[in-house]
Simulated scan of single mutants.
Amino acid sequence: MKIALMDSGTGLLAAAAAVRRLRPDADLVLSSDPDGMPWGPRSADDIVERALATARAAVAHGPDALIVACNTASVNALPALRAELEPAVPVIGTVPAIKPAAAAGGPVAIWATPATTGSPYQRGLIDEFAADVDVAAVPCPGLADAVEAADSAAVEKAVAAAAALTPRDVRAIVLGCTHYELVAELIRTAVRPTGLPPLVLHGSAGAVAAQALRRIGADPAPELAPTGGLTVLHSGRPAELPPAALAYPEGRLLRTVAPAR
């Protein structure tokens, strides 16, 4: 079994780690685009072009499925990716977990990049799934870039700024950028000090990992030996996990002694 994941940068680590936990025997292909990141400020056409190139590099390694582990790419390029790759390779997109967060009751905050926060896409998800709960849209300028660089001081500053914009009474936060899942506990602590009711964080990594397995007819088997190999591609070039990725538990989990196949 081989699962590919794509993103502009290290935002794919959370979903890749989720796949590894569900199927330690699965080979993983991590395809990112350091030459073109960040994708967020680019035009929609440019994002589609970069996403297609990143996906093609991954698909050249023969995966059974491709996870688009990036909100920006999912918003802008998912139709183009599916049109080119399916049905040969199932393509699984990433959608902010607004629906389950709202189903549990509000108030809910959605942390996302500034571009996503003001997008018709996010507004449409709120209107569709969270019309009956209080929702605070919280822009997080600089947070994804700080996470990408594993710059702890910059991460703490960006998290603190977003926490200051988050209503104190929120019951849950939707992590609307895959990078944010790598610093989830820091976000939880910044928003909800000790002594207050627990704050629920809704990411997408677990859901997309499970969906990828369903699409290829595979069952979770976390008890299996960790024999899965790892292939890393940077803008199509063979590479290794960058040092910044190893700053996070998810990145360290992906290190493997098995040869990539």
Rank of each mutant, 00 (worst) to 15 (best):
T10I: 15
L13C: 04
L13W: 01
L13E: 02
R20F: 01
R20A: 02
R23E: 00
P24S: 08
D25N: 06
V29G: 00
D35T: 12
D35K: 13
G36I: 04
W39K: 13
R42C: 02
D46G: 08
I47K: 09
T54H: 04
V59F: 04
V59W: 07
H61T: 04
H61E: 09
G62A: 02
A65I: 04
L66R: 12
A69L: 06
C70I: 10
N71C: 05
T72K: 15
A73R: 13
S74H: 03
N76S: 14
L78M: 14
R82L: 00
A83C: 05
P87N: 09
T94E: 05
K99H: 03
A102N: 06
A104M: 12
G105H: 10
T113G: 02
T113M: 02
T116A: 07
G118T: 07
G118R: 15
S119L: 10
Y121Q: 00
L125N: 03
F129G: 00
D134A: 15
D134H: 09
D134G: 11
A136N: 03
A136K: 11
C140R: 10
P141C: 12
P141H: 15
A150Y: 08
D151C: 05
V155G: 04
K157D: 10
A161W: 07
A163D: 05
D169Q: 14
V174M: 08
T178M: 10
H179L: 03
E181Q: 14
A184G: 14
R192V: 01
T194I: 10
T194S: 14
L199S: 06
H202C: 06
V208D: 01
Q211R: 15
A212Q: 07
L213T: 08
R214V: 05
I216G: 02
I216N: 06
G217P: 09
D219S: 15
P220L: 07
P222L: 09
A225L: 14
G228K: 11
G228I: 06
L230G: 04
T231P: 03
H234L: 00
H234F: 01
R237L: 02
P238R: 13
P238M: 10
L241A: 04
P242K: 13
A244R: 15
R252V: 04
R255Y: 00
